[in-house]
Design a protein around this nucleic acid. Structure first.
Lengths: 145, 145
DNA sequence: TATTGTTATACTCTATAACTATA
DNA sequence: TATAGTTATAGAGTATAACAATA
């Protein structure tokens, strides 16, 4: 029986294989380069590294309820990783930012994850790395909002 | 100031960007193609689709404690997605497998995830898809055990 | 009255320790 | 005595509902 190859079929097959590859890498990074804090805490630190945010903003970005974010932030504050600051003009608002310890921890975690990934790529040829370089740029472009 | 580019630096930069791209895709698949069951339940169904396994094997593979797996499996059994069977010769052992409903649910979930990914790739040219095809194969080879 | 954030309470997933059944 | 699995209990993370403070 001949294999019928249509563009649609190719696309779905590629989508499947690519998704599996990405999710497998993601899973193994989280498992094998697991660090000092939980994933949801890491995620919040990463958001706060971009810019100062309020609890409400973080809850929306991370798609959790405000009470959950209150709890997560509270834990990070207790660990000395995040700083709470009052707003100058609106007494309801809280501004959250990373402490130096929070910045240092985030940097360590990221280095650990990058090291895991780099170790997988070490055996590749220059040509293969160039292929992945271009594929990475393409992926970034394709999934951006 | 000239940019100094060493092979090591390139490798780490690629590892970082590639890791970020993969984890972002993984995250968005889980968020935006979220289905009827929780991620840890999905993961167990996927393992049981490969082959019949015992609770202890699943706990080891998923890196959770045996009691946690007992609970997860219990929930899946209650939902009619997984079947428990006694071992013929060893009364302590339990064999777990997917029910038809479990197989169907797993198939639906995977189709939903693939559809999300395929939608991102739709706008790509044939040349770009070929690039991703080769990158996907490379990734699979690089991270395999 | 609307908004921001927290507290009250409950449910789920996780873990360690203890227990049951079997080998 | 060791192994496979479950039950007992407790610790996080999450959710909805109710509350406090502020605009």
């Amino acid at each position: 029986m001949p294999v019928v190859t249509t563009p649609e079929r190719d696309l779905v097959a590629l989508a499947h294989d690519l998704r599996i590859a990405c999710m497998r890498i993601s899973r193994r990074v989280r498992f094998e380069a697991a660090g000092e804090i939980a994933p949801h805490q890491f995620s919040v630190l990463a958001r706060l590294a971009e810019q100062t945010r309020t609890p409400g903003e973080l809850a929306a970005i991370e798609q959790v309820s405000p009470p959950s974010m209150t709890r997560t932030v509270g834990s990070l504050v207790d660990q000395g990783l995040v700083h709470r600051a009052a707003d100058a003009s609106d007494g309801r608002v809280v501004h959250l930012s990373l402490t130096p310890a929070g910045q240092a921890l985030l940097k360590r975690e990221r280095a650990q994850r990058d090291a895991w990934m780099a170790a997988r790529l070490e055996s590749l040829s220059a040509r293969e790395r160039e292929l992945l370089r271009r594929a990475t740029d393409l992926l970034g472009r394709v999934v951006e909002r």
